[in-house]
Design a protein around this nucleic acid. Structure first.
Length: 829
RNA sequence: GCGAAAGUGGCGGAACUGGCAUACGCGCUGGAUUUAGGAUCCAGUGCCGAAAGGCAUGGGGGUUCAAAUCCCCCCUUUCGCACCA
């Protein structure tokens, strides 16, 4: 070849095409797409904490490759981006450096946006949203008001998770291992009144609808199911002996009701106040309660075996047999689950067993492992927790398992001493925060009218600009009189604004709907537009949001459906969790460790496309990556020395990319190459479907390796092959591909061209190699015609000396032929 | 403790429903070329063995004509839940 390959000047090429895409509106999504031919590609809302790092970069190029391929499928693509801009880090930075959170956030957004633009990600920036701007949070407040109107936003007093470092309350989902998810400070319990969203009303749907999401990974679905924690059982009304007050308890094992030997109540449970405790008992219980509350969740969870508690001196009556049992307060009972009290059956529950042993409480066996085996309470090393026939249980004796549970429950409801009951681990979502940098809660507290929602015409409630937002345990807004003091919208009297702001997860629970109509000033979004674009076809993000954001946003979608704003019950049909990017030693990148690798320097030194390709090639998208710049060298050589020069080998014929070649129009070498091309189209397409870009690149490397311009005489085929190869790589290396596409004289953007479809007649060559095994061991392989039947393969096999060596003198027992792959000869003797 | 996922060359990783294990790349070895190169090109590269052949997908059993893939036990790693009655 004498043609001199055009030099690859990535700086020039990247700038040129980014400008071109911008001016031609390539990434601009249609206002009203055809719902049957749309693709909504979404990456998770980004917190602008500084510039983006390798982890973000990986996330966004995955989304970009998919979005660009979808363009090439001819779809209307929506691929938006925006900022989850409220939140603590902005406040921390502000406190630390004396910059206002708004300014700090604005600067970070600028920097990150320009990095993303530099990386050539195909976002439709005209739809960019920012949750800390009034034109966005107006509608977050609107969402709150809709929930409030349906009584799904409400205030409640109770023990809440309090982070002493951040000086704010947290939702259950934001406490990990008893620590604040953000700052890792152990949380403590505080008794406070806070705002909640009633997500528990949706617990059943949030669980059941997971089964309608085949495109979601099983681990996420399992985590959500466990988090919601639905369990079926019965509620049985015990009675406090002295006061006669009913004390219902939830149990999944009503079949052990006759084995109850004590009751245990959580220290925080309200009913403790109503036990009429006096003297020594009252003192002991108060002391214990203080001790329990002082322990944080980690300590409480750590005492797995050593359970403690105090006897209240009071008794409860088991409604099934009128037995009197001791009433204890114990902190192994959780206040927030069920009724905060449990019926303790030491013989059949490990925790109750440990507790009973410690305090010498009787153990009564009411379940036997089977008819023939009986248990001796004094000899039991631990509780027997499996099902078995009931004993010592009056007329229920002999029943076991599900039928026992059913009979006991039915009996309870007939006698009005209990009922069947479903319980959940999921708690309502605590959304109020005592922090400045968040979306104000649009509620006015009026002495006369109570909680009054700010009228929609008065939204947004603007976050006032204040100088001092140091957290001190109550909202900084509470100290801004001109903000707090307000007239009641209903009676016109003096009233006060709610000083709290919302959890930022509220902002990120509906942002995907704002994108469909981000400039709408009259509504949060147009319903028809939402109906046309929704659901999200692919949602890409980290696994960290499995039980937080991904639960909240499903909840919002369902709520919006219920009030007529959304058409689907689920927001996203497919979810993909990409792996994390760690440093080369396997440590999580973090600012405090100072090991954050930025893609910026790499993109500047080696080019955007090479950096993207290196990230794609290093591992499949779902796996974690230990990033090292050395990963680049292989793909860089491929991209610059092998792939890019293909454009210069173009011969200016005008191949019809919609056509397939026939065997007799090509030489043997060309036909082989044509088969390879079609195999590659198939492999790359399959790899894209699974988001396994590493194998897509490997396939392209093989194709380019096998291509030999000197041996391709047919110009049209030569050009056909080159164009298709460029197309296959385009979503991964968009600038390079676009440049090559132009060098070959194509008029329009490559992303307006159609993604290659493999020729079904040409994925198998004329001849195939069939492996021949004798007794399961590979002995030889034979080359036969592609359409050869078993007989022909056998004939060929038995001509092989290597095969004969192992079959001669032996009896052929059977022959198994797997078409086109393998022949296994089973020989005996 | 419970639950889930994973474990393949020196390394990153291939192998879609059981059907030629180690594709592709890095690294390494040898060679070519170059004033030189951390550039480029060619060849080799799982282990044992001179070869024939044998052995290899964390370890041990099993199912099958055939197992990285399915089943059982164990080990390791990662993630999730951590008293949910």
């Amino acid at each position: 070849m004498t043609t001199k390959a055009k030099k690859y000047d990535f700086r020039e090429i990247e700038g040129k095409w980014q400008k071109h895409w911008e001016s031609s509106g390539l990434n601009r999504a249609a206002a009203d797409p055809d719902p049957k031919n749309k693709f909504y590609m979404l990456v998770m809302f980004a917190y602008p904490s500084g510039d983006i790092h390798m982890g973000h970069f990986r996330n966004y190029i995955i989304g970009d490759a998919v979005a660009r391929q979808q363009m090439m499928f001819g779809k209307s693509v929506l691929h938006p981006f925006g900022w989850d801009a409220f939140g603590l880090p902005a406040e921390r930075a502000a406190i630390g450096r004396g910059v206002h959170p708004e300014e700090w956030t604005r600067q970070n957004v600028e920097v990150s946006r320009s990095t993303l633009q530099k990386a050539g990600i195909s976002y439709d920036w005209s739809r960019e949203v920012n949750s800390c701007r009034p034109d966005y949070y107006k509608w977050t407040q609107w969402m709150f008001v809709q929930l409030f109107k349906k009584s799904l936003a409400y205030r409640k007093r109770g023990f809440v998770n309090w982070c002493p470092e951040d000086k704010t309350v947290l939702a259950n989902e934001q406490v990990k291992d008893g620590k604040c998810e953000r700052c890792h400070t152990p949380v403590v319990k505080k008794d406070q009144e806070q705002w909640y969203f009633k997500i528990t009303d949706y617990a059943d749907r949030l669980t059941d609808d997971l089964d309608s999401l085949p495109g979601w990974p099983d681990n996420v679905k399992t985590m959500q199911k466990e988090w919601i924690g639905r369990s079926y059982g019965a509620e049985i009304d015990f009675v406090i002996e002295e006061t006669g007050e009913k004390l219902p308890v939830f149990t999944t094992r009503p079949d052990t009701i006759y084995g109850v030997t004590f009751m245990a109540i959580a220290p925080e449970a309200e009913i403790v106040q109503r036990l009429n405790l006096e003297g020594e008992d009252k003192k002991k219980v108060e002391e214990y309660k203080h001790k329990a509350l002082a322990r944080n969740d980690i300590e409480r969870a750590a005492v797995t075996e050593d359970k403690d508690g105090v006897f209240t001196g009071k008794y409860a009556i088991n409604p099934f047999n009128n037995e009197r049992v001791q009433l204890w307060v114990a902190d192994y009972v959780l206040a927030g689950y069920g009724t905060g009290a449990v019926m303790a059956v030491p013989a059949h529950d490990t925790r109750d067993f440990a507790f009973a042993k410690k305090y010498g409480i009787p153990i009564k066996v009411v379940i036997h492992p089977d008819e023939k085996t009986s248990l001796d309470p004094d000899q039991m090393p631990d509780a027997y927790v499996d099902y078995g026939p009931m004993v010592n249980s009056a007329h229920f004796d002999g029943l076991s398992g599900d039928s026992a549970i059913k009979s006991v429950t039915e009996f309870a409801s007939q006698k009005s001493i209990g009922r069947s009951k479903v319980n959940y681990k999921l708690r309502d979502w605590l959304i109020s925060r005592q922090r400045y940098w968040g979306c104000p809660i649009p509620i006015i507290h009026c002495a006369k009218c109570g909680q009054v929602a700010v009228p929609e015409s008065d939204l947004p409630v603007l976050l006032p600009k204040v100088e001092n937002f140091m957290p001190k345990g109550r909202s900084p807004l509470a100290d801004v009189p001109e903000y707090v003091r307000v007239k009641c919208p209903e009676c016109g009297g003096e009233a006060e604004r709610d000083p709290d702001t919302m959890d930022t997860f509220v902002c990120s629970s509906w942002y995907y709907l704002r994108y469909v109509d981000s400039a709408n000033s009259r509504e949060p979004f147009g319903r028809e537009r939402a109906a046309a674009w929704m659901p999200i076809d692919l949602y890409v993000g980290g696994i960290t949001h499995a039980t937080g954001h991904l639960l909240y946003f499903r909840f919002f979608q369902k709520f919006l459906k219920d009030i007529g704003w959304a058409a689907d019950s689920e927001p996203a049909t497919r979810l993909f969790n990409h792996g994390m990017v760690m440093d080369s030693k396997g440590e999580v990148m973090s600012k405090s460790k100072g090991n954050v690798v930025s893609p910026v320097a790499l993109m500047e030194q080696r080019g955007v496309d090479v950096t993207r390709l290196a990230m794609f090639f290093t591992a499949p998208s779902e796996k974690e990556v230990l990033w090292s710049d050395e990963s680049i060298s292989g793909v860089e050589k491929f991209a610059i020395n092998k792939f890019f020069p293909l454009a210069s080998l173009f011969r200016r014929s005008e191949p019809d990319l919609k056509c397939y070649f026939k065997h007799d129009h090509l030489s043997d070498f060309e036909w082989q190459l044509y088969v390879k091309l079609n195999q590659t189209i198939k492999r790359v397409s399959d790899s894209f479907e699974r988001l396994q870009f590493n194998t897509a690149i490997a396939a392209l490397m093989e194709l380019v390796r096998d291509y030999d311009a000197d041996r391709v005489k047919n110009d049209v085929f030569n050009d056909y092959l080159i164009l298709k190869t460029i197309q296959l790589a385009a979503p991964m290396v968009p600038h390079m591909a676009e440049e090559m596409w132009e060098i070959t004289g194509q008029a329009d953007s490559i992303f307006k061209s159609r993604w290659p479809v493999h020729d079904p007649e040409a994925v198998v060559g004329d001849t195939i190699e069939v492996a021949v095994q004798v007794n399961g061991k590979l002995r030889d392989s034979v080359t036969v015609a592609a359409d050869a039947d078993q007989k022909a393969v056998e004939e060929a096999a038995f001509e092989s000396q290597k095969v004969l060596k192992f079959t001669q003198g032996k009896q052929i027992v059977k022959k198994i032929y797997v078409r086109g792959r393998i022949l296994n000869i089973v020989a005996k003797g």
